[in-house]
Amino acid sequence: MAALLRLENVSKRFGGIVALNQVNMEIQYGEFVGIVGPNGSGKTTLFNVINGVYFPDEGRVLFEDRDISRLPTHRRASIGLGRTFQIPRPFASATVRENVAVGAMFGSRGKETNVNESMLVAESIIERMGLSRHRDKKAELLTPVEKKLMEIARALAMKPKLLLMDEAMAGMHPGEIDRLVELLGGVAAEEEVAIVAMVEHVMRAVVGMAQKIIVLHQGEKICDAPAQEALNDPKVIECYLGYTPEEAS
């Protein structure tokens, strides 16, 4: 079977700054991938190119073998691309249930789901995420962690094939991270969602779950390997710490 998502020589420049330089990568169906890289390495730009916020200057983005390089963001959602943000962006005046239902109404199952059915979908996902008692609360009244969980619920309600998660675990304590990792692992396996999680700080989450890790540095992909291997790669260590182990000794 072909890859779910494939990037072919994708470049994106802002003026003279090369944010992404000839990036190639593949994500398989149901795979869990961590995107790692220091500040300014191009992770967010990569997400924005996959998601359609930006169009690539060069190269192609293929989703299920279809070229989506120039497809607007909302159309990408309807073919199965979901996303959560680093700082949650709830629809503040709507209730938790309404927020999540919006995902079901307009995501990949949007065409065949009416308002009432979307509410039912939302309820089952909310329960799964452990947010049932906040169901009728306005989203703006949730705590930051609850907002994050709600945003993940909202993205899952879209029934995505690929879910881009932007620093989903930042700001959570280890217990919560473990719980979320387990939950996501379960959902991903069951619904066959491929998850691409962007990580800057919380390595714990990635190492525990990722089948592979892609490391970005100054807009280039410097490593694409299974988790342990990637974290021991000298080039990766260099870009995080500034020198190679050999130089240090």
């Binding site: 909302h74 309807s78 979901g82 709507a94 919006v102 109404m105 995501g107 909202r154």
Partner: peptide, 17 residues
């Protein structure tokens, strides 16, 4: 629901489809 979503956060609304 679409109008509420875009009133609250237009970019997030796009991402929802």
């Amino acid at each position: 629901y679409a109008l509420t979503a875009l009133r609250e956060d237009e970019d997030a609304a796009k991402v929802m489809g």
